[in-house]
Design a protein around this nucleic acid. Sequence first.
DNA 1: ACAGTATTGATCGATCTCGGACGAAGTGTG
DNA 2: CACACTTCGTCCGAGATCGATCAATACTGT
Lengths: 387, 387
Amino acid sequence: MGQSSRSELTRLTGLSRATVSSIVTDLLSAGLIREGADTADPRTRPTGRPAQSLTLIPSAAFAVAADIGHHHVRVAVCDLHGNPIWDTAVGNDTDRAPSETLDLTADLIHQALREKGIAIADVLGLGVDIAVPVRAADGVLEAHGIMPGWVGLRPGRELEQRTGLTTWIANDADAGALAERLYGAGRGTSDMIYIRLSTGIGAGILSGGRPLTGAGGLAGEFGHILADPRGPICRCGNRGCLETVAGSAAIARLLEHSWGRRVTVPDLLRLIDEGEKGAVRALEDAAERVGFVLANLVTVLNPEFIVVGGDLAAAGPKLFEPMERAIRRYALAPAAEDVTVVPGELGDQAEVRGAAGMVLAHAPRILAGRRVAAESGDDRHDPIGAD
Amino acid sequence: MGQSSRSELTRLTGLSRATVSSIVTDLLSAGLIREGADTADPRTRPTGRPAQSLTLIPSAAFAVAADIGHHHVRVAVCDLHGNPIWDTAVGNDTDRAPSETLDLTADLIHQALREKGIAIADVLGLGVDIAVPVRAADGVLEAHGIMPGWVGLRPGRELEQRTGLTTWIANDADAGALAERLYGAGRGTSDMIYIRLSTGIGAGILSGGRPLTGAGGLAGEFGHILADPRGPICRCGNRGCLETVAGSAAIARLLEHSWGRRVTVPDLLRLIDEGEKGAVRALEDAAERVGFVLANLVTVLNPEFIVVGGDLAAAGPKLFEPMERAIRRYALAPAAEDVTVVPGELGDQAEVRGAAGMVLAHAPRILAGRRVAAESGDDRHDPIGAD
DNA sequence: ACAGTATTGATCGATCTCGGACGAAGTGTG
DNA sequence: CACACTTCGTCCGAGATCGATCAATACTGT
């Protein structure tokens, strides 16, 4: 996104050269982009007139993002390149009234803008992601086990009212997937699965470049695929969900029997890092189960990348090797060949950066609207839930 | 698609009323649509000026479709409503040289147009579906077990050259899914899974209204999800694929042991229909396995409909009840509540009608181009693999 | 009967976008 | 160095699309 040129934009957007040229002229005079030096490598340069390179001026506008999880609220301000220039996470108990969490979120946003000295007019919008399924059509939260008090709310609209910012909202896994595609391990692909292996297991699926949300926004509930028909009862009411046999808390619990004391997730990660045999074995078994389930998804979805995030991704090859082995063994061979399994690159910033990415993906349209708005009256309408 | 009105088109297309009005005027004068009688039900009519109903004149233009399967070629000519007015299937051995099959297909197409007295100028295009994965970007066939001689070919382009018709191509399962969505059991939904239970098991997935093809066009290989780690070896090289334990041929083979003679698929269906206990039991067990696998897909994809086609769909409740029971039991509860399992309505016409549907979905654009072409030179370009 | 409301359909000027023509800026060749 | 060739960027007229506005047609309530 950083460097481009008029003719490259022509190819990317599908617009004609004439149109791109006209828009670029406007953006130049609006001070949002800059014609850069001609940095093309003389050796790789093709014949013909060289393209004039164009650079976004990153500080010309900003996107605000909020990540609302089970036990935290994280707010970031990102520049036009998607890089966070302000990023703060605070602990929070979502079992309290949702309005308190939303107030806290709005306070953090106002604090961020104040501290960075950014005017509302320079903010393109607010991207929100939340650990609850979101109905894509209207941004209403759907029913699911966690955070039950939030079902039926429209936090996008709430935050829009509290901040005055145009708001987009999505599920946290979908936001994480978008971030890894835009800025992380899945750059440029249009068919990927992003899974987060933590106490909970969730997935965001990108298909044909778009998030796969399903009819009710529930898609991606990877952690509740049945992994063991005789496994433990899950908080969702089924038994043997992948989460109950391969979530990091479930793995840690496996060790409590032999250690005779409580084992936390940090304990588990330390033991794995030290190579403690029991912990490694438990991890490998869990990884194989995850790989087995992923194999079936690979057969059905034929993704190009599987990006793995969450606590457990830190375990490195001890996690990835058994997981990949299971995928190669159990998935349809040509589909297994198409897929590459990689660790996420964005860590716990993924979700909030993806939320900002939702806003930045609309930057051209927003900026186009603003050019008009500067001349006539400003009356853009509510794009909550817009794709 | 049959009945509509200007304002309904405004909502469907997202275009402005002004634009729709202008296009409708053109189509009216071109004789492609007709202003119908005001047939709205007086009881359900809302307040305001009633909409003028518009009807496609079905015989104003046609779409040609070809369905190329393992052992057959089927060609149909459909009117603008998508109804077949000519439909013929012939046996064929795809192990022969692909060019012979393509020649046969082109011959059938020419025969159809000749018999119906349709001029090439009145044909919007040719839709092709084939029982091989198709790479969406360019229509090249991908590697897979069946019909190996076809890999790397571009049958869309081949048929375009043989017939002179603008051609679209897709996988057969995706075409079937599209047909059931346009004309069959999944009318109007945008998130559905179409599965075909026959000797082979395949699925076409529609997500957000678009076919889910995956990175290499392989998506939907539902029959090769692992259903039984100790099951028989499959033609794909894995073992225990769903197809080997729940395909109709696999079920029939189960009965051969006790009957001591060869049991064909028609035999199996007859026995099931007669209520023979062993056959029913075998079917129910297979249905439960399919349901189990579908449950995981429901959890991950959250579809609105599952449409079941293929030989086995004829078995009715004996198939559907155990299948649905498994879905309700093993899928994430809210996702299971969102989904409805229904038999397909189009039978073995599904694929070919879906192929025609691909063409008809582009009818507005094609017709718009033609209006221009009638005035200036005709130079529309190759949309093979276009979405 | 009549104003008020709601929805559809047509018209008009403004704007957006496109394709084609043209000039600009480089490389390669004789 | 002249010339062909390639790609990039701009200009211009044609057509598509839009928002705003107005007219048409029905129902509702008094």
